[in-house]
Amino acid sequence: MAWRDVRKKMRRTMADLLEIPGEIALDLPKIVLVGNVQVIIENHRGIVEYTTESVRVIVPVGEVRLRGRNLVLRNILPDELCVEGEIQSLNFT
Protein backbone atom coordinates (compact mmCIF):
# COMPACT_ATOMS: atom_id res chain seq x y z
CA MET A 1 0.00 0.00 0.00
CA ALA A 2 2.79 2.36 0.91
CA TRP A 3 4.59 1.59 -2.31
CA ARG A 4 1.49 2.52 -4.33
CA ASP A 5 1.25 5.86 -2.52
CA VAL A 6 4.89 6.63 -3.29
CA ARG A 7 4.34 5.79 -6.96
CA LYS A 8 1.26 7.99 -7.10
CA LYS A 9 3.14 10.87 -5.49
CA MET A 10 6.01 10.51 -7.97
CA ARG A 11 3.63 10.56 -10.91
CA ARG A 12 1.95 13.67 -9.60
CA THR A 13 5.31 15.41 -9.12
CA MET A 14 6.36 14.48 -12.66
CA ALA A 15 3.05 15.66 -14.08
CA ASP A 16 3.41 18.99 -12.28
CA LEU A 17 6.98 19.31 -13.46
CA LEU A 18 6.15 18.63 -17.08
CA GLU A 19 2.88 20.56 -16.93
CA ILE A 20 0.88 17.64 -18.29
CA PRO A 21 -2.85 17.98 -17.63
CA GLY A 22 -3.84 15.95 -14.60
CA GLU A 23 -6.67 14.04 -16.26
CA ILE A 24 -4.20 12.44 -18.68
CA ALA A 25 -1.26 11.73 -16.44
CA LEU A 26 -3.16 10.68 -13.35
CA ASP A 27 -6.26 9.24 -15.03
CA LEU A 28 -8.61 11.68 -13.36
CA PRO A 29 -12.06 12.69 -14.51
CA LYS A 30 -12.44 16.17 -15.99
CA ILE A 31 -15.67 17.71 -14.82
CA VAL A 32 -17.00 20.90 -16.30
CA LEU A 33 -19.91 22.63 -14.61
CA VAL A 34 -21.85 25.20 -16.54
CA GLY A 35 -23.74 27.12 -13.94
CA ASN A 36 -26.26 24.80 -12.39
CA VAL A 37 -27.65 23.66 -15.71
CA GLN A 38 -25.05 21.40 -17.27
CA VAL A 39 -22.29 19.02 -16.17
CA ILE A 40 -19.82 17.47 -18.55
CA ILE A 41 -17.83 14.56 -17.18
CA GLU A 42 -14.94 13.34 -19.27
CA ASN A 43 -13.15 10.10 -18.65
CA HIS A 44 -16.00 8.28 -16.91
CA ARG A 45 -16.40 4.57 -16.47
CA GLY A 46 -20.14 4.18 -16.72
CA ILE A 47 -23.27 5.13 -14.83
CA VAL A 48 -24.51 3.43 -11.71
CA GLU A 49 -27.78 5.18 -11.22
CA TYR A 50 -29.91 7.48 -13.26
CA THR A 51 -33.17 9.05 -12.17
CA THR A 52 -34.51 12.55 -12.63
CA GLU A 53 -33.30 13.45 -9.11
CA SER A 54 -29.92 11.77 -8.98
CA VAL A 55 -27.14 10.57 -11.26
CA ARG A 56 -24.21 8.47 -10.08
CA VAL A 57 -21.23 8.00 -12.34
CA ILE A 58 -18.17 5.84 -11.82
CA VAL A 59 -14.91 7.69 -12.39
CA PRO A 60 -11.33 6.45 -11.93
CA VAL A 61 -11.05 7.92 -8.44
CA GLY A 62 -14.38 6.68 -7.18
CA GLU A 63 -17.87 7.86 -7.78
CA VAL A 64 -19.46 11.19 -8.63
CA ARG A 65 -22.93 11.84 -7.39
CA LEU A 66 -25.14 14.54 -8.85
CA ARG A 67 -28.35 15.66 -7.25
CA GLY A 68 -30.91 17.91 -8.80
CA ARG A 69 -34.23 18.06 -10.54
CA ASN A 70 -35.33 17.11 -14.04
CA LEU A 71 -31.96 15.61 -14.86
CA VAL A 72 -31.50 14.44 -18.42
CA LEU A 73 -28.57 12.58 -19.95
CA ARG A 74 -28.05 14.82 -22.91
CA ASN A 75 -25.22 12.82 -24.36
CA ILE A 76 -23.45 9.63 -23.55
CA LEU A 77 -20.25 8.50 -25.25
CA PRO A 78 -17.74 5.85 -24.08
CA ASP A 79 -15.63 8.49 -22.32
CA GLU A 80 -17.83 11.55 -22.13
CA LEU A 81 -21.10 12.25 -20.43
CA CYS A 82 -23.28 15.32 -20.40
CA VAL A 83 -26.04 15.85 -17.88
CA GLU A 84 -28.50 18.70 -18.07
CA GLY A 85 -31.13 19.89 -15.69
CA GLU A 86 -31.33 21.80 -12.44
CA ILE A 87 -28.23 20.68 -10.53
CA GLN A 88 -28.19 21.09 -6.79
CA SER A 89 -25.05 19.28 -5.69
CA LEU A 90 -22.05 17.32 -6.87
CA ASN A 91 -20.25 14.95 -4.50
CA PHE A 92 -17.27 12.65 -4.71
CA THR A 93 -17.61 9.44 -2.76
Partner: peptide, 27 residues
Protein backbone atom coordinates in the same frame (compact mmCIF):
# COMPACT_ATOMS: atom_id res chain seq x y z
CA UNK B 1 -31.36 -2.48 -14.70
CA UNK B 2 -31.50 0.33 -17.17
CA UNK B 3 -28.13 1.80 -16.07
CA UNK B 4 -26.50 -1.44 -17.06
CA UNK B 5 -28.31 -1.33 -20.36
CA UNK B 6 -26.92 2.14 -21.03
CA UNK B 7 -23.40 1.19 -19.93
CA UNK B 8 -23.29 -1.91 -22.09
CA UNK B 9 -24.61 -0.11 -25.11
CA UNK B 10 -22.20 2.79 -24.71
CA UNK B 11 -19.26 0.48 -24.28
CA UNK B 12 -20.43 -1.36 -27.37
CA UNK B 13 -20.13 1.86 -29.35
CA UNK B 14 -23.81 2.71 -29.58
CA UNK B 15 -24.41 6.39 -29.23
CA UNK B 16 -27.30 7.49 -27.03
CA UNK B 17 -28.57 10.98 -26.43
CA UNK B 18 -31.46 12.79 -24.76
CA UNK B 19 -31.96 10.09 -22.16
CA UNK B 20 -34.93 10.89 -19.97
CA UNK B 21 -36.32 8.91 -17.10
CA UNK B 22 -40.07 8.39 -17.40
CA UNK B 23 -40.73 6.42 -14.25
CA UNK B 24 -39.30 3.69 -12.04
CA UNK B 25 -38.45 1.28 -14.82
CA UNK B 26 -38.88 3.17 -18.05
CA UNK B 27 -36.56 5.54 -19.87
Amino acid sequence: TLERFINLATRGGIYFWDIRRLDQDRI
